[in-house]
Structures are given as structure tokens and as C-alpha cells.
Amino acid sequence: DLSGKLIIKAQLGEDIRRIPIHNEDITYDELVLMMQRVFRGKLLSNDEVTIKYKDEDGDLITIFDSSDLSFAIQCSRILKLTLFVNG
């Protein structure tokens, strides 16, 4: 049953990962930690990372904090994230 699940599709460069999320109350910090685990070796804990999501118009919107993240989650059951490393 995928109805209650949130799917995160995260892209870093050419690498795209699909991550099912069971807890929608994820904070921004938890998201960043999850991305560091998912992209281990490509995304380091001291990297400056910018996370953006695609909205319904196809625009890339920056996620700065947990309220941005929860808004993005409300918009779509499949959250398409693009990561930019400013390392």
C-alpha cells in the first residue's frame, strides 16, 4: 500500500535515488542526514548542500528549512529533489 507513503526521488549529478519515506514529519536536518547516507561518498557532512524540489510548474524551489520541506511534501506524494553541492 503506497498511499500512505511518501516517495523521495533525489538527484545528485547524474545519480538518482528513490527512497520511500514512512514518516512524513521529517525535519530538514533529518532530510540532510538521509541524503548524506543515500549519497555516501558523494555528499560529505561538511559539504554545503542546497536542496531544491520541483513544484507543479516544474520550477526548482529551494528548501531552506523544515517548514519549506513540509510544504513541499503537502504538494506531492512524490517529492523530486535535486541536490547541489557548493563544496
Rank of each mutant, 00 (worst) to 15 (best):
D1N: 12
L2A: 02
S3T: 08
S3I: 13
K5I: 05
L6P: 09
L6E: 02
I7D: 07
I7R: 03
I7N: 06
I8Y: 01
I8Q: 00
I8K: 02
A10Q: 02
Q11N: 07
Q11I: 09
G13Y: 06
G13C: 04
G13Q: 07
E14M: 08
D15L: 14
I16L: 12
R17M: 13
R17T: 04
P20I: 12
I21M: 07
I21T: 07
H22A: 11
N23E: 06
E24A: 11
D25L: 08
I26S: 00
Y28T: 01
Y28L: 07
D29T: 10
L33S: 10
M34L: 08
M34F: 06
M34G: 07
M35F: 06
R37K: 09
F39M: 01
F39Q: 01
R40M: 08
G41D: 13
L43Q: 02
L43S: 02
L44R: 09
L44D: 14
L44A: 07
S45H: 09
N46P: 12
N46F: 13
N46W: 04
D47L: 15
D47N: 05
V49F: 08
T50S: 13
I51E: 00
Y53M: 06
Y53D: 00
K54Y: 10
K54Q: 15
E56H: 11
E56A: 13
D57K: 15
D57F: 13
D59C: 13
L60Q: 09
I61T: 11
T62N: 13
I63R: 00
I63A: 01
D65L: 00
D65M: 00
D65T: 12
S66A: 03
S67K: 10
S67L: 08
S67E: 08
S67G: 09
D68F: 02
D68R: 05
L69C: 00
L69H: 00
S70G: 10
S70M: 13
F71D: 15
A72Y: 06
I73H: 01
Q74W: 01
S76D: 14
S76P: 03
I78T: 11
I78W: 07
L79T: 14
L79W: 03
K80A: 14
L81C: 04
T82P: 02
L83E: 00
F84G: 08
F84P: 02
V85A: 06
N86R: 11
G87C: 03
G87Y: 06
